[in-house]
């Protein structure tokens, strides 16, 4: 196990980590700009007079079919997509890790139940699962985040349960048990810290998948409901405009790919920095 500072140093040292960090940083800056409202245009207000204008000094990314500034929409869209991804992954991490810990550590009936549910969720086609869940409730960004989270929960369960199974047999855990500490305490104080790096790696990878899943749901008409933009719904809505106004699709498409690339690179960097095995191979 390396310390937090050591990991940061390693992250910054790895090329992909550094590039990923820079790209993600830029995207975060865009999100912040959108959220605190320093951008000159509102992403939702429609302006009939300035429909489908190509990129210009006033509208950096041009305007869409409703005369909305695409730069403002991309910024708001990336904020929405990030919000959905972060909430979905956070939810999946908490639930999945807790279930994986409990199942792996306590074994027995709770483990059997948790493994059963995991198997079921794995066997259920993921996009169809998200799609059905997204149709059940009145759709908003939160219900979509929950739908995506449910798809990712079993991944987190599987990722944590395995190492926990190994850890519980390791000497220092046995030793702690021998001293009569409660099992919950051992689990939180001794087992959890040892799987943090695995979880962090999984979180960074899942973030980029979540952004893409939200985009796929948008494509099937079950993404973030308009008018609030998300990268996925923007790209989807602009597909018909590809020949008439290519910028309406290129801008959100490019930002989406960039965002996912950034997250993936960051994920790689984090894995290199945290995963002792991969570091050992260097």
């Amino acid at each position: 196990m390396s310390t937090g500072r050591e990991s940061w140093r390693l992250l910054l040292k790895s090329k992909s980590g550094l590039i990923g960090l820079i790209i993600t940083g830029l995207i975060v800056a865009l999100i912040v700009a959108s959220v605190i409202g320093v951008l000159p245009y509102d992403p939702i207000t429609q302006h009939a007079a300035s429909r489908m204008q190509p990129p210009s000094a006033a509208h950096w990314f041009g305007t869409d079919r409703f005369g909305r500034d695409i730069f403002a929409r991309v910024a708001a869209g990336v904020a929405n997509s990030a919000l959905i991804a972060v909430v979905a992954v956070t939810f999946a991490t908490i639930v999945g890790t807790a279930a994986g810990l409990v199942g792996g550590f306590f074994r027995g009936a709770s483990d059997a139940a948790i493994s059963g549910v995991t198997n079921v969720l794995f066997a259920f086609p993921p996009l169809l699962l998200a799609l059905s869940l997204a149709s059940v409730f009145t759709r908003n960004w939160f219900t979509i985040a929950v739908a995506i989270a449910v798809v990712y929960i079993p991944i987190f369960i599987r990722v944590t349960r395995g190492p926990v199974l190994t850890l519980r047999e390791i000497d220092f855990v046995r030793a702690a048990r021998a001293t009569g500490q409660s099992r919950w305490r051992i689990m939180v104080a001794h087992v959890l810290p040892n799987i943090t790096s695995i979880i962090i790696v999984q979180v960074t990878l899942s973030l980029s998948w979540a952004v893409l899943t939200e985009a796929s749901l948008s494509f099937l008409g079950l993404g973030t409901p308009p008018p609030a933009p998300s990268l996925g719904s923007m790209v989807y809505e602009a597909r018909t405009l590809l020949t008439l106004a290519p910028w309406t699709m290129l801008a959100p498409g490019a930002v989406m790919v960039l965002f996912v690339v950034g997250l993936n690179l960051l994920g790689d960097g984090v894995r290199d920095a945290l995963d002792p095995q991969s570091r050992g191979r260097k």
């Binding site: 429609q46 008409g221 308009p226 008018p227």
Partner: peptide, 17 residues
């Protein structure tokens, strides 16, 4: 409604505004 016809949500947002 969303998905049934292309303009619904845009009408709604405009009337809302």
């Amino acid at each position: 409604s969303q998905g049934e016809y292309a303009t619904s949500v845009n009408e709604a947002t405009n009337v809302q505004a």
